[in-house]
Design a protein around this nucleic acid. Structure first.
Lengths: 131, 131
DNA sequence: GATTGACTTAGAGCGTGGTTTAAGTCCTAC
DNA sequence: GTAGGACTTAAACCACGCTCTAAGTCAATC
């Protein structure tokens, strides 16, 4: 009943499969799980090796979006804990994401403004070199 | 010969003046200097207290642009060391900044793409709440 | 059914970028 | 000239997010 490519098993994946698909290391995947960032504990094959479902993969992928936008681990954990409470927590999760979005937008503005200053300096150097 | 406001002295500023103007802490300003990020050592009043010139302030301000765009301290030090060599290093400084610009642009793209996914989730929550 | 490489846990270690502490010195105001 | 706050240094400390180690277990292949 095992599959060929990558050692996948009827729609489930090993930790290294998920590592490859998400760009995270297996270390980091275990670390995230330990930190309580998974929606639910990952299933185990034979009660030891992790078997990730597609839903697990999608969840981890969303986690990486939060991390890429610099949401701290602790804040992600808050979000996950709300998510585990089900639909009742929708308003709180929305608030959390709206606050985060504002942070990200401010961050983008700051980086963009700094980039403009760097571009200005680049222009000065290019002029100096063409002279 | 002392000035009134802020304790400034004929165009020079105390470390706390610079902290206020740059948004950095006095600790961080000393740390950057220790790390060799100043173009030249900051002048001292009475051989102890730092006196920053406008040029120092401008330099620190540019450093903050590099930091805001996540240039590591070590890379900034490289840049500073080139800058201290004078105009001969213009091409190398330009290269360094061009590489950095590519990194920043990729970073901006990643953050923007992640933000889109977060916005998608926000939309789902908003729909769910309005139902 | 043995080998071998992937997996497991718990816990220590690390890189980065500051921040804090301790002990002391200096400058401004009175 | 003295009080008090701002300044000084060297060095220890910290938060964060991983990353690595050690010692052992498991699973796919031969």
């Amino acid at each position: 009943m095992t599959e060929s490519a990558g050692g996948e098993h009827a729609g489930t994946m090993s930790i290294s499969d998920v590592a490859e698909r998400t760009g995270l290391s297996t270390h980091t995947l275990r670390y995230y799980e330990r930190e309580g960032l998974m929606f639910a504990p990952v299933d185990r094959a034979s009660s030891t090796h992790r078997r990730y479902t597609e839903a697990d993969l999608n969840w981890v992928t969303f986690l990486t979006k939060l991390r890429m936008t610099s949401m701290p681990i602790a804040k992600i954990r808050e979000y996950v804990e709300l998510a585990r409470q089900g639909d009742d927590s929708t308003a709180e999760r929305l608030d959390l994401l709206l606050v985060h979005r504002m942070n990200v937008e401010r961050q983008l503005e700051e980086v963009t403004a700094s980039l403009a200053a760097i571009n200005h300096k680049i222009g000065i150097y290019q002029e100096r070199l063409s002279a």
